[in-house]
Amino acid sequence: MGRYLLRRLINHVALVLIAASLTYFLAAISLNPRANFAGRNPPVAASSVTATLNDYNLNPDTPVVVRFAHWANGVAHGDLGRTVTGGEVNDEFARRVGVSTRLLLIATILGSIGGVLVGAWGAIRQYRTSDRVTTLASFFVLAMPVFVIAVTFKLWAIDINDAVGHKVIEYTGEYDPGLTGTGEILLSRLQHLLLPSLTLIVIQVALYSRYQRSTMLDVLGSDFLRTARAKGLSRRAALMKHGLRTAVLPVVPLLVYNVVLLFTGATFTEKIYGWHGMGEWLVNSISTNDVNAVAAVGMFTAFVVLIAGLLSDVLYAALDPRVRVR
């Protein structure tokens, strides 16, 4: 089992390193930080612009390979480079990383568990009302881009607040900066967490449940489930003990792809609910041609994918004895 996981680890690390490097290349080619200095009033001398850009390793006239080497060297030493305004990317990264991680973690855990349960339940109760309702609901959710869900939730929150007369649901920022006292701040953070998490969880649940439902239906017709019932297990017990575990297996690798989608989703929720996380940073950095910041976000997503990949491999190996053998 250890060997298997090690092999998978190497595979993931290789993929992730290449993905992160590719992001840097694309950003370095596509974004033009020099444009930021155009149209400044008073105009900045071309030579001093070049000097600044060189200083930050952002000069588009330097061959991209050279810039990459410089950047990669920095990254290897734990330095993600400078932003277009001269700040340390590391500082901004540190400020934002927790914000996004919190969202991703909550949505992944609650979303995957919820989705598996909803999907399995739907399969067991196939064609009953509860199955139809969850199926229809997931169709609806999957037909909506994240921003539509996020904005709709926000509009509903405003309506509810208006109806109640005071702010019961928070929809901007991470906490109320006017508060003191740890307890109050904590409560406020939780309140602010509600809508962004809910947006992401709803989507994850819908994604996982569709998939889980169909793998569970496959298992429902399987021979081994019939054997389990022939042994004397009731339908429910057979499903829970023999069916669910087998049906979860094909869903586990989905974790990686769903995390990628989740990151994209987080970008929208952060923007819409005014959270200062990695996704918001990405969007802002692209408009400010901030190559190193974009590359840093690329590193972050690569890392998230790496963790998700490992997690899914560990889960898979724990659930399926067949991969443990070699």
Binding site: S222, D223, F224, R226, T227, A228, R229, A230, K231, G232, L233, S234, R235, H242, R245, T246, L249, L319, D320, P321, R322
Partner: peptide, 27 residues
């Protein structure tokens, strides 16, 4: 179904055709 579970596997047992798919792979 509940009463049948008392009988299945105890009074009447079954041996199926394909022993690979008839055993749960993960146990």
């Amino acid at each position: 179904d509940r009463d049948m579970t008392e009988i299945r596997g105890k009074d009447i047992a079954m041996v199926f055709q394909d022993p690979l798919s008839a055993l749960t792979p993960v146990y």
